[in-house]
């Protein structure tokens, strides 16, 4: 009888341990799914808000989009597939960052172009100023002439 009780205790203890491990596994998976939700929903624009991401919005549509993302993450779809799902329905507008292709490439390249143009302008101006400042330093003759004239003024 005692043996049976002991065996039962051991069985219970081990099963609860296993159960605990299973629960932890589940938690980690849930955490990972939540992390993916955050990544995807932060990159999607809430259609009814002004410049707010789906992840930050509590509007009905944003909540529905979050539910759909959760469902699709659970169904094993990739981040790109999930983003594509919303782009086909709401258009490229739904992406917080426009894709760097086609006309949108201009949005990415223009600041770089403007910055390089500005830097070039500063370099050219600095070069010109140096050239303009340089000549007086070399005109030693001027100083000498001034000194001779000064000497001539003496009685």
């Amino acid at each position: 009888m005692r043996l049976v009780v002991r065996l039962l205790v051991i069985l219970l203890a081990s099963s609860s341990l296993l159960g605990g491990a299973g629960a932890a596994d589940g938690l980690i998976q849930e955490d990972r799914a939540e992390q993916r939700l955050k990544t995807i929903a932060s990159g999607l624009r809430c259609p009814v808000c002004q410049g707010e991401a789906v992840y930050d919005s509590h509007s009905t549509i944003a909540n529905q989009m979050k539910t759909l993302i959760r469902e699709q993450v659970a169904a094993g779809r990739t981040d790109d597939e999930i983003r594509g799902f919303f782009v086909t329905r709401y258009g490229a507008f739904v992406l917080m960052e426009p894709a760097a292709s086609g006309m949108n490439l201009m949005i990415w390249l223009f600041p770089l172009l403007a910055l390089s143009a500005g830097m070039l302008a500063i370099l050219v101006l600095l070069g010109r100023r140096r050239q303009a400042v340089a000549p007086p330093a070399t005109s030693v003759g001027g100083t000498e002439e001034f000194l001779t004239r000064l000497e001539r003024l003496e009685p």
Partner: peptide, 9 residues
């Protein structure tokens, strides 16, 4: 119009 949304459909 800042609320304008192009339609993908």
């Amino acid at each position: 119009d800042p609320t304008f949304m192009p339609s993908a459909l």
